[in-house]
Design a protein around this nucleic acid. Structure first.
Lengths: 164, 164
DNA sequence: TCTTGTCACTATGATTATCATAGTTACTAT
DNA sequence: ATAGTAACTATGATAATCATAGTGACAAGA
């Protein structure tokens, strides 16, 4: 492609978000980070993206202050990637994407019983379904409050990806 | 690029959404549709995207049943694009993107007073701020319930785009 | 009738992002 | 000394995107 048109100076807020989020690799990496995966190799593995892409996007995310690069050991030098507050603020976006897909992106019966990934409120143990406010305790849901429980079919897929 | 890896058969719901939404052009076109813009030329103008891209993405969105193509006159043949229910379901995603950007994507004072686009609940006239439940009447907010009021600075930008 | 204008696109060629694959760096462990 | 691991970088082929120009089907005015 030619240099893509830069709309980062657009005044429209959706346009600004789109500049960052309108990229498959960014979205997949953010998914990994929200699931608590912080290592380069793990993210590359789970997303199926090549290492140059993962590298380039993490660099971008660090630049945008959505992600922070932290050394977790000195020798050999090893790094992890953590969401900043700005990054954690994207929880609602990813959660809305998840809810939309659970509702619209699966063929009937494709997920077996219930959703592809069941979300459990850590604080009270309730299955939150697709709510933004916990049906068990009434708390508002945000970053780190939920634990994902993949359906048996999704677990099988993850195992298959890890072992090939 | 080579043919990009197809993850549409991924079991993960965020991955499935990312397949469609991880594309700047798709996001911008959806923004136009949510603002009630249904004409090809208007969308191309407002997004700054070339006509082939707009054409290709609208085709994709129609295929995915997110958008419906409707003739609004026979001679000469003219068409408009409308969101389907599946498309309207993306309201929460775009709304979350907007809220995130209003919070994080502007320099202090860049929007003047208040947000770049103020959202008003049509039913009761209240400024909803960034809420998902109307602070004026308590109703849950969804597709078509809100009216956007661009800040003076954003209006100026739109006028500039239309007249060059 | 001839020209101009509008809407919704399609065609062409240059540029560049992405992919698959392989290689590198800096170590630790055996 | 060899193998292994984490986090990358390098290379070449392919394809998506951009800018620009052109097309088809008609309406309206000179």
């Amino acid at each position: 492609m030619p240099k893509r048109a830069d709309l980062s100076d657009t005044f429209c807020p959706v346009g600004r978000s789109a500049e960052l989020l309108g990229d498959r690799a960014v979205l997949l990496i953010l998914r990994e980070l929200f699931f608590g995966r912080r290592r380069f190799e793990v993210m590359a593995q789970n997303t199926g993206l090549g290492p140059q892409l993962v590298s380039a996007r993490l660099k971008l995310l660090v630049e945008e202050e959505v992600v922070e690069r932290r050394a977790y050991q000195e020798r050999p030098p090893r790094h992890e990637y953590w969401l900043t507050d700005k990054g954690k603020g994207l929880f609602e976006v990813l959660y809305a994407m998840r809810n939309w897909a659970e509702r619209w992106a699966y063929a009937p019966g494709e997920t077996g019983e219930g959703p592809a990934i069941r979300y459990i409120h850590r604080a009270c143990g309730a299955d939150v379904g697709m709510a933004t406010i916990c049906p068990g305790c009434g708390a508002e849901l945000g970053y780190g409050d939920l634990k994902g429980e993949p359906s048996p079919m999704l677990q099988a897929e993850q195992v298959a990806r890890a072992t090939n």
